[in-house]
């Protein structure tokens, strides 16, 4: 019996030593994070993918575009799917629909529904034209955005869109969004207190483990 204990004791010691060693080894000098995995991403590598545009204009590239230029680019590259004036389809309607959101037949478009003009730049460069995403130049995107905003009655005909003017455009439905109030419908079961949203330890607590 006493003999058979020895290997276990040895193994337990080995595990403890192993853990200590792992604990010491992981944050080695040359390893960036706790596990030492991954490569530093260079500025250049990040730039190739960093295409998002925020409401404050962060991410907008240099360049500019006018309503007039936009009309031409739109006719050539977008009208086939979205219609000559942005209302005909066959794909998503892009123009009109203002004052319909509270009706029985709401028409959600850029003009009636979208809260931020910057999202237009982000989405059009990212995904359109549908058959050739990420193929447009900044000038083309700025000008299409200018034309779509003009068509929706949001900017004037001689408007110029660029990294400064676009974030300053105030969309008609900017204040039309509310945060999630759910649970909003159900009857509460006896003995339960409904905590809305997701229970979480939160970022602060999580960060303590870093």
């Amino acid at each position: 019996m006493s003999r058979s204990k020895a290997p276990w004791a040895f193994m337990a010691l080995a595990i403890v030593v192993g853990l200590v060693m792992v604990g010491n080894e992981v944050p080695a000098q040359d390893a960036p994070g706790p596990y030492g995995l991954g490569f530093p991403a260079t500025e250049e590598e990040i730039r190739a993918w960093d295409i998002d545009v925020s409401p404050n204009g962060e991410g907008l590239p240099p360049g500019r575009g006018t309503v007039k230029q936009g009309a031409a680019v739109y006719a050539a590259k977008c009208a086939a799917c979205h219609g000559a004036t942005g209302t005909e389809g066959p794909k998503d309607r892009l123009v009109g629909g203002q004052d319909t959101l509270a009706t029985d037949q709401p028409v959600k478009t850029i003009g009636s529904f979208w809260p931020y003009a910057t999202t237009l730049y982000d989405y059009i460069y990212r995904t359109m034209p549908y058959t050739a995403p990420q193929s447009l130049t900044p000038e083309e995107v700025y000008s299409i955005v200018a034309w779509l905003l003009f068509q929706n009655g949001i900017v004037v005909e001689d408007a110029v869109m660029d990294a400064t003017t676009l974030p300053a455009v105030r969309m008609p439905n900017r204040d039309g969004f509310v945060s999630d109030p759910r649970p909003d419908v159900e009857r509460r079961e006896r003995g339960h207190s409904l905590i809305p949203g997701i229970p979480s330890r939160g970022l602060a607590l999580w960060l303590e483990h870093r």
Binding site: L101, A102, P106, K108, I110, F113, W114, P115, Y116, T119, Y123, G176, F177, V178, S179, D180, P181, R182
Partner: peptide, 15 residues
């Protein structure tokens, strides 16, 4: 914004 937001009868949308 345009999608995955839930339009309510009063015309506001939950995001």
């Amino acid at each position: 914004t345009s999608r995955y937001t839930d339009l309510m009868p009063d015309g506001t949308a939950r995001r």
